[in-house]
């Protein structure tokens, strides 16, 4: 493995770690809202790291731009959806879990 392949592997493995952690949170966390935290935050970082890992290997700047664009679009979509899902749940009387 050359240097760029190694960097790319570290970043992508790091990204996978956060996807797995987010999924564990989704399964273990006690209620609707805490699960949303796990999904949005861990996946945002996980995807960012995977995209960074792929960008290191990209053959052109156009590809890098495209990857970053995809990350930004997913980020915008997931933040907006997270808010809409949380608001709908709250307004329909979903009670947050408390200690």
């Amino acid at each position: 493995m050359n240097l760029s392949e190694s960097i790319s592997a570290v970043l992508i493995l790091g990204g996978m770690f956060f996807f797995v952690a987010g999924t564990v949170g989704l399964l273990r966390f006690p209620d609707f809202f805490t699960r949303l935290h796990a999904l949005t935050k861990a996946d945002n970082l996980g995807l960012g790291l995977v995209i960074a890992g792929l960008a290191v290997q990209a053959s052109s700047w156009a590809d890098v731009t495209r990857l970053v664009l995809i990350w930004l679009l997913v980020l915008g979509a997931s933040a907006t959806l997270c808010f809409l899902v949380a608001r709908t749940a709250l307004r329909h009387g979903q009670k947050p879990w408390t200690k």
Partner: peptide
């Protein structure tokens, strides 16, 4: 509101 959901420990639920 959107960025807040990506901060540590906070999630926007209504505005």
């Amino acid at each position: 509101v959107n960025l807040n959901s990506l901060l540590p420990g906070t999630l926007s639920a209504d505005l």
